[in-house]
Write a protein that binds this DNA or RNA. Structure first.
Lengths: 337, 337
DNA sequence: TTGTATGCGTTATCAT
DNA sequence: ATGATAACGCATACAA
């Protein structure tokens, strides 16, 4: 509101705005003590540069756009994404970037993510999405604006992914190591991540010499307890029941947990279970849910680092696809057979 | 990246930039068909205004700052706040405003929320906080920048609150109506919201003629299952046990749920319980958690409407404190006595 | 070392 | 009805 400008500082110091600008930007061609004194008065006057003016002049805004292309209101509400965004924000802020939420419209104007990003002069984009085949995402990726994606790698773009194939594999091996041979898997929505997990599941079962009946692998929905409940009912009504059910994610497991209780099965005595994600909920449940913890904090942080590099060193920067490992969280829901 | 400018459109149309600007802004002093043709070519060239230039000139950015002054990483991760932010975002976007996350620093520079907001030319601020006594929040509120707060009302500022006194009262009355007389209450961190809930609890108990022993009201921590577990243990070890325990929030109830199970009490046969918030988790648990649903969607939406009014009609706008009612969600965790 | 002048893209004022 | 021009706040090439 006050909005002190360079001009006011210049008047207060009896110098030109150019000199003030140089002092504030630690330019080399300015007297040390004069620069220092200018900085002091600038500070005392509560000066902060005007981001719009600076963006207009320098052609970069020190602002990163965040796109949310997530389904079924699993946006900010999903702890996995919320944590990634939170750690991304922290790291971006440390590097001097603010985050602006970028949507597909503004008022009555419908615009693509790219158009919106250009409108806001975003220096880079953090693409948080599930449906990467969204044309507006494709357009974004095809442009020359620096960006980083999560859990999906486009050609020529940096990406940070949870290691889905190996994570799934690790979890299957853990379950197998406790003696389980009849392992069922409820997978989530058929997005890229899911394909990899299914791949990891079958591959690992194969390596372990397990042959999994077709009806042990059923489709579910991420973050949806109801669907997991239904899938659980289906699995437990099979004549040859599994000894362990792997759920698509921790949250949807809640549905399975309740259904198993309703059916009179206790966990892990009668049936073992695993989740996926490692959200804080899994440590609140009893027994603690055995799950695979995806290191969302590391994912967000790394994504921010990659994006900042891409923005600040466009020439020497090389695209990377970083895979962040996770860990099996041994809870108490998988019983030794 | 392409960044079509007014100038390019002007050249393409053989008119001046002033004329183009008028056409695009539907000014009155311009020929109808010429304006229309200019708009067509602008569209065909993929023109979008440069937000920075516009902000510089008009002194408003159509950008709203969001401050997150939340403890213990209950930021985006808390479903209540995440939902409020989500609905706020949707409504703000509809009115043509983008959201920028405002922190207390940027790079190595430490700045107050106000300084950061001025730096980014925010037209208004959405204050999402728990600790309203934070000096940086006070500074923000004392300034003349339009803002709206949630669950705490400052003098001369708009606020949207969940009706904490009455909500708590409604929940107590519901429990009482099912025959409970020995009601315990684990309250959360001692912030303003909590004070009101405690007030609502005691007031209603008084009106209902219940005298609550001191050791039935114990301090807990929001969003913290461990603390709720400890408090539960304490309550259940009393010689004269309560018949119902009211938890600070749905999430922290998870700790109580597990502890009760560990102690061999089943819900609701041996002990009744309630949560607070009405997050989606409560409907995933079995039995469904009886809780008080705070209408986070309505809160966020209303907050955005108030803020946009404050920004766009600074003169005729009157500060408001809107109380959003909620509803008891009858789950299955309170047994009829 | 310091200051002058120019332009970023837009809107607004004032001529024409 | 249309256009030249100035100004928003800042950074920088260039002149002094």
């Amino acid at each position: 509101m006050l909005a002190v400008t360079l001009k006011q500082i210049a008047e207060a110091c009896n110098v030109s705005t150019a000199t003030v600008s140089k002092a504030l930007n630690y330019a080399s061609d300015i007297g040390a003590e004069k620069a220092e004194s200018i900085r002091r008065t600038a500070k005392s006057m509560g000066y902060f540069p005007n981001a719009a003016a600076r963006a207009l002049k320098t052609n970069h805004s020190r602002n990163i756009g965040v796109t949310f292309s997530l389904d079924r209101a699993i946006g900010l509400t999903h702890e996995y994404f919320a944590q990634i965004l939170e750690s991304f924000q922290l790291e971006a802020e440390t590097s001097g970037y603010d985050l602006t939420l970028i949507s597909r419209s503004l008022g009555k104007t419908v615009m693509s993510y790219l158009e919106h990003s250009i409108y806001r002069n975003c220096d880079g984009i953090f693409v948080l999405a599930q449906k990467f085949e969204d044309p507006s995402i494709i357009e974004l990726v095809s442009s020359k604006i620096p960006l980083v994606t999560i859990d999906y790698a486009f050609n020529g773009c940096s990406a940070v992914s949870s290691d889905n194939v190996n994570n799934m594999s690790g979890l299957v091996r853990y379950v197998h190591s406790l003696g389980h041979r009849k392992i069922a898997f409820i997978y989530g929505d058929k997005i890229d991540v899911t394909t990899r997990r299914i791949e990891g599941f079958y591959k690992t079962c194969g390596e372990l010499g397990l042959s999994i009946p077709h009806d042990y692998v059923v489709e579910g929905v991420y973050h949806c307890p109801e669907t997991s409940a239904a899938a659980t009912r289906k699995l437990m009504s099979l004549t040859d029941r599994p000894t362990c059910i792997m759920y698509p994610d921790d949250y949807s497991y809640i549905g399975g947990m309740n259904e198993l209780d309703r059916l009179g099965f206790s966990i892990p005595e009668d049936i073992s279970v695993t989740g996926f994600d490692g959200i804080s909920l899994s440590k609140g449940l009893r027994p603690n849910l055995t799950t695979f913890h995806q290191d969302s904090g590391a994912i967000g942080k790394k994504a921010a680092q990659l994006l900042v590099s891409a923005i600040e060193q466009p020439d020497k920067y090389k695209f990377e696809h970083v895979i962040i490992p996770g860990t099996v969280w041994e809870g108490g829901t998988v019983k030794k057979q």
